[in-house]
């Protein structure tokens, strides 16, 4: 079985986000970019399926600017077999909406015919939490979002999902779209030899136009602002003072 894993290049989770003064968006020039953390978990899960003999090939796909090939090289260094880059934007500030991403992925899947897609549950930049669900809708496949455990068994998969207040286990027909939550696994670090090897693994380059997908956004960004600042607090001198404040205000 072939497993396809979409990965997104986003601002590194440890970088402080700065809103541009003109309100046009978040400044992404000269900041550290990394693979979306949830996508790392998805890549790891796909590689583990291959190591278990459930999958025989892991294909990583990224859609965005040309520099996303760095993110794909990371996936290859972790253990993906090959990669497909779909260039859909020239400017790093142009985010491709989940609907357009899902349409491109559908076109890739029509060609690649994987038996399973594992995606991150959301990207930490636009926080949409939508691509997996949308892709599943467009393909007419089953969907198992927010997965914390995945067991593939022949023509179905049993997936435990993180839902409000607990866990839900469902059984989905294959082919399926699974989206990875935080608890699914702990992604490995790529070793130096594997990083070197990844440079020689195949990476195909395509464009959104190759797949005939219009990526023009449905949502126009009117403005981007800083969230309201918290009013400055105070330092208390002792536990007693803290207890008095808390009793007066909340407890």
């Amino acid at each position: 079985m072939k497993v396809l894993v979409p990965v997104k290049r986003v601002i590194d989770y440890n970088v402080k986000v700065r809103v541009k003064a003109d309100g046009s968006g978040v400044d992404l020039a000269n900041v550290k970019m990394s693979m979306n953390p949830f996508d790392e978990i998805a890549v790891e899960e796909a590689i583990r399926l291959k190591e278990k003999g459930v999958a025989d090939e892991v294909v990583a796909v990224s859609i965005g600017v040309k520099q996303s090939q760095e993110t794909l090289r990371t996936a290859l260094a972790m253990g993906a077999d090959r990669a497909i880059l779909v260039i859909a934007a020239d400017d790093v500030h142009q985010d491709i909406e989940p609907l357009a991403v899902a349409k491109i992925l559908k076109a890739v899947i029509d060609e690649e015919a994987p038996g399973l897609v594992i995606a991150g549950k959301q990207a930490i930049d636009n926080d949409m939490n939508a691509t997996g669900q949308m892709l599943s809708a467009l393909l007419g496949w089953s969907q198992a979002t927010f997965a914390s455990e995945v067991n593939v068994d022949g023509d179905s998969a049993v997936v435990t999902r993180e839902v409000d207040g607990g866990l839900q286990t469902i059984k989905v027909k294959m082919p399926a779209i699974i989206t990875a939550d935080l608890r699914l696994n702990e992604p490995r670090y790529a070793s130096l030899p594997n990083i070197m090897k990844a440079k020689k693994k195949p990476l195909d380059e395509k464009t959104a136009a190759d797949y005939g997908v219009d990526v023009s956004p449905r949502l126009s960004v009117v403005k981007t602002t800083e969230p309201a600042e918290r009013a400055a607090g105070i330092k208390v001198g002792s536990v007693d003072e803290l207890v008095a404040k808390l009793k007066a205000e909340v407890l």
């Binding site: 609907l99 939490n129 997996g132 669900q133 949308m134 956004p217």
Partner: peptide, 22 residues
């Protein structure tokens, strides 16, 4: 909610519109 986040993007894609989350 977990249900809303699970279902609404699927609804949006079936209607060929973007979902607006959160």
């Amino acid at each position: 909610t977990a249900t809303g986040k699970n279902v609404m993007p699927r609804v949006a894609a079936l209607l060929d519109v973007m979902v607006i989350s959160d």
